[in-house]
Design a protein around this nucleic acid. Structure first.
Lengths: 226, 226
DNA sequence: GTCTATATGAAGATAGAC
DNA sequence: GTCTATCTTCATATAGAC
């Protein structure tokens, strides 16, 4: 029902088996996709020429068409693969965690972990939805909607049980997803902060907010973490 | 020192005088810019042909070059105009409000107000930085950095005075700016929520967080605002 | 499977008449 | 100021040899 633009190899597990972590691409097909990820993220879909993708993969532009039907198919495969992965991981959290608070904590951590591990891929998902043509767009947006609905389910559940403050569920989910997604824009692996530190900072901000309320037990100076 | 790509009319106030609010564009120059805003936002900079911008403005493509040096100049003018407006409004808040809490409240409200009033313009600023060439990019990013620094100044001040929780200032500013910026992506004027409702929801989320802590004075059901 | 060669179209931009 | 006509470049994509 899907993958109408895939030509061959529909069972070759594009980055799926996950035996290795970040090593060299094995097949030419994977090399093409890796190059596409790199250049779509750097210049944008429309500004990234197929010739450059081919050169980066070590082949001629025409050879890409043996592996993929067209340029659009590259974009769709990138988005599909990683949106599915994101959804699958959240579904697992929903299965394993019963309580809204644990679910939300895990969801935030999971979201940030994936968006930092696959920075470029999720950056593309975040910025190139407009570049999808026709049914591709509907399909990817349905995957995104599914993710949003799961997050909204967590929020609704938490509000009904009195664990989260009453708020607008849709708007809260947008705010939350957005701020966690944009980590893919500014995060630099090996930079000042570790992934876990970012997760902790975001969890704190989302759950407890910025305001020192009542307790005032917050030493005002000298305890910054660097 | 700037506007090297503007051809003529450097004093014609591109949407600046603000006598009218959202009326018909007066000059051809403004009609071109309005069309560019529309199409850059809808299809992206690279995917929006100059010919279509011209048609929407009621002229031929070649005529654009009488008013603007090239396509890139359209993008730069859009981004420059509205980033300056955003910065100016925040600077005014800094001048008028002394306390960090009032400043942050006003900053959030101001950010959301501008990002909903000029949805397309700020959506372009948010998504087309990559399309800027050479020095244009440095220039616009400097404007954006200035805005971030002002927000960070508010946060630092508030943390030092014990009004805000201790947290990482940069990360907090990114999270905060990002979530407010993305309102431009999903907000629909005349939709379910008013601008003011969105401002209230975001302020609450940012300042107080999602968690019902201690007090538990939050009736769990039947009090949703629609 | 990958190549060279090329078809085909569309883009941004310019020239020069009016 | 705006037009028509056109230049030039570069894109995606295809054909067919190896």
């Amino acid at each position: 029902m899907r993958n109408s633009q895939l030509k061959r190899h529909s069972s070759e597990s594009p980055g799926g088996q996950s035996g290795s972590v970040q090593s060299e691409p094995r097949s030419v097909r994977e090399a093409i996709l890796a190059a596409a990820v790199e250049l779509f993220a750097r210049y944008g879909y429309h500004a990234a020429p197929l010739r450059d993708i081919a050169r980066m993969a070590g082949i001629q532009a025409a050879s890409i068409y043996y592996h993929y039907a067209n340029k659009q198919a590259l974009l769709v495969e990138i988005m599909e693969t990683y949106m599915r992965r994101l959804n699958a991981s959240l579904e697992q959290i929903m299965r394993e965690q019963p309580g809204p608070l644990e679910r939300l904590r895990e969801a935030i951590a999971n979201h940030i972990r994936l968006h930092t591990s696959f920075k470029n891929e999720f950056f593309i998902i975040d910025t190139e939805i407009r570049a999808l043509e026709g049914a591709n767009r509907d399909y990817i947006m349905a995957l995104r909607d599914h993710y949003e609905h799961l997050i909204q389910e967590i929020l609704r559940d938490g509000m009904e049980r009195g664990i989260f403050k009453q708020s607008d569920i849709k708007v809260t989910s947008y705010a939350l997803i957005t701020m966690c997604t944009e980590v893919a824009t500014w995060f630099r692996p090996g930079g000042r902060l570790s992934v876990q530190q970012v997760i902790d900072l975001y969890s704190q901000l989302i759950l407890q907010g910025l305001l020192c309320q009542g307790d005032s037990g917050q030493r005002p100076a000298g305890s910054e973490h660097t």
